[in-house]
């Protein structure tokens, strides 16, 4: 099997399965461990507070919006682009349709996908500069914060370059941009369960934990 065949075949399976199974394991680990050591969560569990806290933080209805409006809005925009573009970009849906699953769903216009990609990259650049230039954020940043920001931005950079052939003057990129793009996406999927990118699932557990307690005490959830 060629390297290209491996990256577009088995490695896709490995990446998606690592992502899905890894997520399930992280969720299961939370349930198993919390049932022994965080009994307070079950004792005071409240669907009302859990849904309220999810709603407040998945939508910009929380305290941060008033306190740090610009950063907060950028974070929301970043995450919307991060989720929407890979799932609803026409080129990706085409691959799902071609695959053994034959799945199809309506894509977003390509122009919108382009803009969302550029916006995400601009926000990522802002995050990076903020990390480097702000003495506050620089102090608390760890190596993984920088690496994971790059890992997250890479599929979007390479995707854009691949779509538009921006670097096609360089033979290496002309021949390999597709494979680099796929690899970068697979790298991200594989890293999600093992790094703090797992916050995409653990966010819900963490928020629920605090929401249950804070709701009961009448604090802001």
């Amino acid at each position: 099997m060629s390297f290209y065949g491996f990256v577009t075949g088995p490695l896709v399976w490995i990446a998606f399965l690592t992502f899905i199974i890894g997520t399930l394991i992280r969720a299961a680990m939370f349930f198993v461990e919390s049932s022994k050591k965080d009994k307070v969560l079950y004792k005071h569990f409240s669907v009302k507070y859990v849904l309220a806290t999810f709603g407040r933080w998945l939508l910009p209805l929380n305290k941060d919006l008033a306190k740090n409006p610009i950063f907060t809005i950028l974070v929301y925009i970043f995450h919307i682009c991060l989720i929407v573009v890979p799932i609803w970009f026409s080129g990706h849906i085409y691959l799902w349709e071609e695959s053994r699953f034959g799945w199809y769903w309506s894509p977003i216009p390509d122009g919108l996908a382009d803009w969302m990609t550029l916006i995400l990259l601009a926000v990522a650049l802002f995050f990076l500069l903020r990390r480097i230039l702000s003495p506050d954020i620089r102090l608390i940043s760890t190596c993984s914060d920088y690496v994971l920001l790059l890992v997250t931005a890479l599929p979007f950079i390479t995707g854009y370059l691949f779509t538009y052939g921006t670097l096609d003057d360089i033979a290496f990129f002309k021949n390999n941009m597709e494979i680099i793009h796929i690899l970068s996406g697979e790298l991200m999927l594989i890293l999600i369960p093992f790094t703090k990118l797992s916050h995409y699932i653990l966010f819900f557990f963490s928020r629920a934990s605090s929401g249950i307690e804070f709701g009961r005490r009448g604090y802001s959830m």
């Binding site: 349930f31 969560l41 950063f71 506050d136 954020i137 916050h199 557990f205 963490s206």
Partner: peptide, 24 residues
């Protein structure tokens, strides 16, 4: 070790060092 429950482990794992807690 025995005191690090699911919540503690999650919190230690996912803080993205965004800095929103600073001026609070």
């Amino acid at each position: 070790k025995p005191r690090l429950g699911a919540r503690f482990k999650t919190w230690l794992a996912i803080c993205t060092h965004c800095g929103l807690c600073a001026d609070t």
